[in-house]
Nucleic acid binder design. Structure first.
Lengths: 118, 118
DNA sequence: TGAATACATTGACAACTGTCTATGTGTGAT
DNA sequence: ATCACACATAGACAGTTGTCAATGTATTCA
C-alpha cells in the first residue's frame, strides 16, 4: 500500500494515537476530518447502521431506499460519500449494488475518538 | 437527570448500542449527528486533542489561540460548538476561561462508532 | 475612575452541503 | 431490439458553515 497523498481517510486514521493522548498535527486533523464529516449526518449514520446490522453484513440499495423518505438520488449521494471515504465497500452483482461496512475502519475511528488503544 | 428533549447530544449517545449492532432509529440518528458534526472539522479536532492532552486536562483560550493561525473570534466560535454539544466543559477563573474535555462523552462516542460495548 | 486584557457576540460573505428533478448507464427479460 | 428496472450523475437551489472585522462584556490593575 502506498504512503502517498492518495491515502484514503480510513487508512490515515488507523495509525493515530487516541485524540486525548497527544495533540493532533495540522495534517492529521485535515485527513481525519473528512472521515468524521462523512459520519456527521443523520441519514448517513442510519445508512451505516442499517448496512452493518443487515444479514450477511451487506445490503442492496433497494433495501436502503425503502428505509428512508428520501429520493433515490439522495440516498445514492449519501452512499457515495460513505464509499469515497472508505467506510463502505461496493460490489455490483447483476442489476443490484451491494454495500458492506469496512468494520476495521469504524473500529479504528472509534478507537481514535474514544481513547482505546489501536 | 431529565429524560426530556433537552438531552444534550452527549447524554443521548451514552445509551445507544454500537452502530453496527442494530439500526439506529430516525430519532437516535437525529440526536447523535450533531455530536459527530461537532467533531467533523479539523480545527475542532485539534482543539479537542490539545485540550485533552494538556497538563491538568485543561487549557485556557489564550493557549488555544496561539496554536492556530486563525482569528480569536473563530477559535471562540469553535469552542462554543464543542461546548454546546457537551464535549467541552467551561470554567471561568478571573479573566481566563478554561476548557476541559468531557472524557466520558468522547469514550461513549468512540464506543458507539467503534463497536466496543458501552 | 480609567485603561488594559481576555474572551464572547454580531453581522457579513463566500464556500459547502443536502435535497430535488431530470437524465444517463448498464443489466436482464421478453 | 426493445423495454423495464436498479442505480448513478448532473444541474439547480436553499440552507448551513467557517471565517473575518468590528464591537461588546467582564475582570483586573493602577
Amino acid at each position: 500500500m502506498s504512503k502517498s497523498l492518495s491515502l484514503t481517510p480510513v487508512e490515515t486514521v488507523a495509525c493515530c494515537s487516541p485524540l486525548t493522548k497527544e495533540p493532533l498535527s495540522h495534517e492529521q486533523a485535515e485527513r481525519i476530518a473528512p472521515l468524521v464529516k462523512a459520519l456527521a449526518d443523520p441519514v448517513r449514520l442510519r445508512l451505516l447502521s442499517i448496512v452493518a446490522s443487515h444479514a450477511d453484513g451487506e445490503a442492496c440499495v433497494c433495501d436502503l431506499n425503502d428505509a428512508f423518505d428520501l429520493s433515490q438520488p439522495t440516498i445514492s449521494h449519501h452512499l457515495k460519500v460513505l464509499h469515497e471515504v472508505g467506510l463502505l465497500d461496493r460490489e455490483k452483482r447483476g442489476v443490484w449494488v451491494y454495500y458492506r461496512v469496512d468494520a476495521g475502519a469504524l473500529r479504528d475511528l472509534g478507537a481514535l475518538l474514544g481513547g482505546v488503544v489501536g
